[in-house]
């Protein structure tokens, strides 16, 4: 997969089938209602004070939920505009996705949300640290966990691209 930047869009090109599968999972992976762990991380309690907590539940949290839902809808809509490219001489499909520059921050947020949820549900960071320190050997990791780690890394790489090229400081 290559990422390119144009004036009005950023383009994911030469997306392989596995990468496309990971990208297509993004809206589902970022769904904060998919598990209690996901909900607790994305919409955490803000205060021990009951008065403040009640205000938060009544006003702030519903606004955050609406915002997060809207952002997932934008990304899902962008994903539906994928082009499937069958390239001569190469086996399998490749995909190309063009995303408007003005959606960059929304994409960053949804990618971030998905990584936060994946880590919360599958302890991705802990597994990676254990691998790096040698406490855990690669063969001890089940296939499903590897796939989640690959998904987590792909999302992180895209976030780094967006952060470097499209997210400006004030």
């Amino acid at each position: 997969m290559r990422v390119e930047l144009e004036k009005k869009a950023w383009i994911l090109d030469e997306i392989g089938e596995v990468e496309w599968f990971m990208l297509s999972q993004l809206p589902e992976s970022a769904d904060f209602n998919r598990s209690e762990k996901a909900r607790r991380r994305i919409l955490p309690e803000v205060c021990d004070d009951e008065d403040v907590a009640a205000d938060w539940r009544d006003y702030a949290r519903p606004e955050l939920e609406a915002r997060f839902r809207d952002e997932i809808r934008v990304v899902a809509s962008d994903l539906r505009r994928v082009e499937e490219l069958l390239k001569k001489g190469k086996s399998g499909s490749q995909f190309r996705l063009k995303v408007p520059v003005e959606h960059a921050e929304t994409w960053y947020g949804v990618l971030n949300q998905a990584r936060l949820i994946l880590n919360e549900e599958h302890e991705v960071v802990e597994t990676e640290v254990s691998l790096m320190s040698g406490e855990l050997v690669p063969t001890a990791i089940e296939e499903q966990q590897w796939l989640i780690m690959v998904q987590y890394r792909i999302y992180g790489a895209l976030q780094e691209f967006l952060l470097t090229h499209l997210m400006e400081s004030p």
Binding site: L43, V52, A60, L64, Q113
Partner: peptide, 23 residues
């Protein structure tokens, strides 16, 4: 003040950062 703190905490959480308010 509390109202501003609530707004800031909400803005931080809108960016998926872990934020809370304490007296």
């Amino acid at each position: 003040v509390r109202e501003q703190a609530e707004l800031y905490a909400q803005q931080l959480q809108a960016h998926r950062l872990l934020a809370s308010m304490q007296r």
